[in-house]
Design a protein around this nucleic acid. Structure first.
Lengths: 335, 335
DNA sequence: TGGAGATCGTGAAACGTTTCATTCACGAGT
DNA sequence: ACTCGTGAATGAAACGTTTCACGATCTCCA
């Protein structure tokens, strides 16, 4: 096996306590002994065994992050934000991908708890799962990402989706559009429903009737392919909509492709607004107008809340942070 | 602190050894004691401390995976492949994102070694780094992903980039193109250079002169934006090229956008071939012909090699696995 | 000269598991 | 009645750190 601190001590002719001090409190050790210990360490190729260190310390300096889908740019950016803050504060991040499966989520929660992470950041497959509550009850702080806990049992960070829908709607209305088609994912998802609510609100506030202005296409999956075929079907007949608002950018790309293949000018004959402002949005054949979420900030805020709770478990008060999204205008609405 | 195995033992009225047996060797324990131990466990909310377990066991059942960029669909798919195999074989995967920075890579290598992972899968920032060699020398098996070790000190899994360039070239030539522009990243990257080599080979094999057929645009970054402006510059003047071969799909998307904005028909006036076949390739405004790499298989193969080496450190012989890429034809070359 | 600090180092305990040799209880076989 | 075997539970050792109370040595000044 790999050499232990004991081997190092022996070789350097000091006690194990001294070696440990060189590693953790160098200022307590004289320069000469420090040097001989260090040479022994590199001669033996010693690497500290973190299991032992953590066992003794009783606590780790790491936090867990469980997201639904790392391939999704949204979560990817969130993760970056989390890592940045964790880095600053000296925490390590254990990255987990639940793939939207409760079973995987539970497995990771188990692993993280066994590792005695200080806290967990999570976008749960469903809010109110027992496994997560149990974790919290046992004293591990938890922060919800892109979700809210109706009972405010813990902190959470999310984005105002109603506001996002409103932004999109107001923008399209200001350009004179009177018929807007909303390409949505399942309306059972809070995000999709909220965005529709916001869109309706914008229409109402413009003094128009949502029932007349808005048409909804609810699709099973929120990807380019399903949006493409849905849009193709609409535009094959003669849809009266002059604008499309899509529940995410992938769907917007699908709609764009359908428009191109039907020979419909964008934005001349069809304006398109996406959601998320993923990297590809700006690089699409016609750069997409989109609703940008402050993803990195979400991650940063979540990590800060978590660390705050870890450091002051008693005085801590749970917060529900809500970020405002932002409209990014590109050529798909204003050629 | 959280309850230990000792607390459980006390509450269930048995010894700690018995509790441990319930956890790890249930068959050695009678049904009645097993039951009382289990009720004690759930009553106390006991969760095993993996640091202690691992310390005692001396070995973990986890492997590390360090990639250059998790946002890149290529690495994302590789990770999926790795996870799938690890899952089957009962290993846990520790996912790390080096972000192409040597410093981050080294930090993660350190952490993984401290955690005593059984092995490491890595796409190193640069091959032949000292930190990695040291790890290997100390007995931790290592497999290179999408890279080769010229000295064959370890296993590696990569894709034949020369072959990929050749596929693209042959395809374009068979469509009658005589002027091909290669939009490349830095030619100092083996991947970019290899793909050019392959392209040249295809031209030569068609009995043509690579010098006359191929023009190279070497860009700093391999993203849509740089490719867009590079392409814009070319097509603004009158480039004689009728086809573009791009070092990755992001660049291809940039070229496509430039073509659209210059009013150049794709594929009629410009055929485009990308590389990687990322998910968006099929969903682009004009679906992209691309070179697909068997990414999941790369991950699977790498994980299998690693586990093989972990399990049979003595009899193991290093292998350099090379996968063949595949041409996926879409509308950007054959309208 | 001696005593008070300051500076370094020591050694043993403790962290929570797993393992393994040992003990215990009990029924079967002679 | 005695041993033998079997199945179940025990208890102590060990894993590699960190911590902390305690010595040892040295310096400085009364």
């Amino acid at each position: 096996m790999s050499p232990s601190i004991k081997d190092v001590a022996e070789r350097a002719g000091v006690s194990v306590g001294t070696v440990s001090n060189v590693l953790n409190h160098p200022e307590r050790v004289s320069d000469s002994t420090k040097e001989s210990v260090l040479t022994a360490i590199s001669a033996l190729g010693f690497v500290r065994n973190s299991s032992a260190a953590q066992l003794r310390a009783g606590t780790s300096r790491s936090i867990g992050l469980i997201v639904l889908d790392l391939a999704n740019p949204f979560f990817h950016d969130v993760a970056r934000g989390v890592e940045a803050v964790a880095d600053e504060l000296g925490y390590a991040v254990v990255l987990c991908n639940s793939d939207d499966q409760t079973e995987r989520e539970n497995r990771y929660l188990q692993v993280l708890e066994e590792q005695r992470v200080r806290g967990v950041l999570i976008t749960p497959v469903e809010v109110g799962s027992g496994r997560l509550d149990a974790l919290r009850k046992r004293g591990t702080p938890t922060v919800l990402v892109d979700r809210h806990d109706p009972r405010v049992n813990c902190c959470s960070v999310a984005v105002d989706d109603v506001g996002g829908g409103e932004l999109a709607g107001a923008h399209l209305l200001s350009l004179g559009h009177q018929r807007i088609r909303y390409f949505s994912g399942p309306l059972s998802l809070r995000q999709c429903a909220d965005r529709l609510t916001g869109l309706r609100k914008a229409v109402t506030e413009a003094g128009l009737d949502p029932e007349r202005v808005i048409e909804v296409s609810e699709e099973r999956a929120m990807n380019a392919r399903t949006a493409y075929s849905a849009a193709k079907k609409r535009f094959g007949g003669r849809d009266k909509a002059t604008a499309a608002f899509c529940a995410n950018d992938l769907m917007a790309l699908g709609v764009l492709r359908a428009a191109v293949s039907e020979g419909r000018q964008v934005p001349g004959e069809l304006a398109i607004v996406g959601y998320d402002d993923i990297e590809f949005a700006a690089d699409a054949a016609v750069p997409l107008t989109s609703i940008r979420q402050p993803t990195q900030h979400i991650g940063r805020a979540a990590a800060q809340l978590l660390v705050e709770e870890c450091d002051n478990p008693d005085t801590h008060a749970h917060q529900q942070v809500m970020f405002k999204p932002e409209l990014v205008i590109r050529e798909s609405t204003t050629g």
